[in-house]
Structure formats: C-alpha cells, structure tokens
Computed example of a mutant assay.
Amino acid sequence: MKPEATVGILMLDSRFPRLPGDVGNPATWPFPVRYGIVRGATPDRVVMRQDPDLLGPFIDAGRELVRDGATGITTTCGFLSMFQDELAVALSVPVATSSLMQVEMVNRVLPAGQRAGILTICASTLTAELLAKANVPDDTPIGTTEGGREFTRAILENRFELDVNLARRDNVAAARSLAAAHPDLGAIVLECTNMGPFAADIAADTGLPVYSIVSFLNWFQSGLAPPAFG
C-alpha cells in the first residue's frame, strides 16, 4: 500500500496563537503534515516588506522538508505567492504557496455574473504583482481586516496573545463590508491562513461560499494521495 502523502508546511517565524482551523495547528488537518520554521521570516518581513532576501531561506527549508518525506509543499501566508515560481523550480515536489491560487478556480465554478472576492489581512500591501503571481484577475474585489480592532494588528505585530472574539468580529465585519460593496460577489477567498478558524462565521453571516487555506490544502493533498476504491 502506498504511504499516505505528507504535506510539508513552511512556517513563518511567528509566536501568535494558532487556533484549530489555522494552517499552523496540526489538529486542522485530517492527513499527515510536517512543519518547518523559516527563521527570520516574520509576519512583518513577509507581509509588510515582502523581503526578497527570504527566498533562499524558504528554498532551504522546503528542501529539508522534502528530504524528510514531504510529498507536497505549502506555506503559512498567502503573500508567499511572491515565491511560487521560484519554489516550484527549486523543489522536486508540487508547491502550493498561497490560498490566493484558488481565486481563478472559484471564478470558474460560480454562476454567470458572479465572481470571487478576496479577504486579506493587509490590503495596503497586497500588490498587483503578488496577485498576478497567483493568477488572480486584475478586477477582483478585495476586502480587509486592516483597520480592525484586533486581528490584523495581533498577527502582523506577532503578539503572544489574540483576542479570539475580537478577531472573529474583525473578520466577519470585513467580509460583510466586502459583500455589501460588490453585489456580484459569489464567494470569498480568504488570503490569510490565520483566517481559517473564522471561515464558518463568515459564511454564516454573508450567506456566501468561503474558501480558505483549509479547502485549498484538502484539495491539494487529495491529489498527492488519491483514495483507493474497491
């Protein structure tokens, strides 16, 4: 019997709490995962500065995960679409860096006249280049938790504590504003891998399908280890 695929997850150098539903919490996954921390890759350096000097450390950490048995590689930040092409060249297994890569696919399954929107932790630094790296259409609606009371600041400042209820309110309020501003919105894709714990709350409040790193990696892993029937 073929062994079950192991997804290697390149972790930011972070200390904020990782709730069930967060990519960095092993309890989120119904399949084997292996984590590798990229030292120095803080939320600030990745999201705010998009530091190109981090490429080498990400490649090194990815290669180590592959040596340890990972059969596919992902990351813990949607902004790492910036390294999608380079990691795909450097590593010998499939690479899915960013939840943003779902936007194009979600658009294809929505009813005519509807489109997917993005909810991001930081709209002010989510550049056209990062979106293009994930094949996100130019006119995609974008909402953000930036300016909220808790979520964006706690994550980007890499705090030890997170007020979960306030973070949930930030996410739901941002999604509600996004939906209200775009009547043609048919689904929401969560850029931030720390938004997964709030996906169900967002879906319940907006009435829209919500896609996150959780949906993306369940799909990703299902191809690495297809189920056997019969």
Rank of each mutant, 00 (worst) to 15 (best):
F79N: 13
V46Y: 13
H182V: 05
M48R: 12
E146D: 11
V7I: 15
G147Q: 12
T144N: 11
P226I: 04
I202V: 15
Q84P: 03
A5V: 04
E157C: 11
Y35N: 09
Y35G: 08
T75M: 08
A204L: 07
N165M: 14
T97C: 15
S98L: 10
R169P: 01
G36D: 00
C192A: 06
S81E: 07
A199G: 01
L162P: 01
S124K: 09
R153E: 13
Y35L: 14
A204V: 01
V95C: 08
T6Q: 11
W219C: 13
V38N: 07
A203S: 13
L126H: 06
V103C: 03
R67Q: 08
L178E: 04
I37K: 13
E161M: 09
G36V: 00
G147C: 13
P20E: 08
N25I: 13
F198T: 00
A128N: 10
F216C: 06
P141G: 13
V93C: 08
G207C: 04
G147T: 12
A134Q: 06
I73S: 02
D85K: 14
E104A: 14
E191G: 02
G69R: 02
T152S: 15
A175C: 09
A96T: 11
G8W: 08
D44Y: 12
I37V: 15
V136S: 06
A5D: 04
L185Q: 02
L19A: 10
A132T: 08
S81K: 04
D201G: 01
S212T: 14
S212A: 12
M1P: 08
V164L: 04
P111I: 04
G186T: 05
R176V: 14
L224M: 07
R108A: 15
I142Q: 08
P94H: 07
L10I: 11
I9N: 08
F79K: 09
T127G: 07
A187E: 04
M11Y: 14
L80F: 03
T145Y: 09
G40S: 05
L55N: 03
L162G: 03
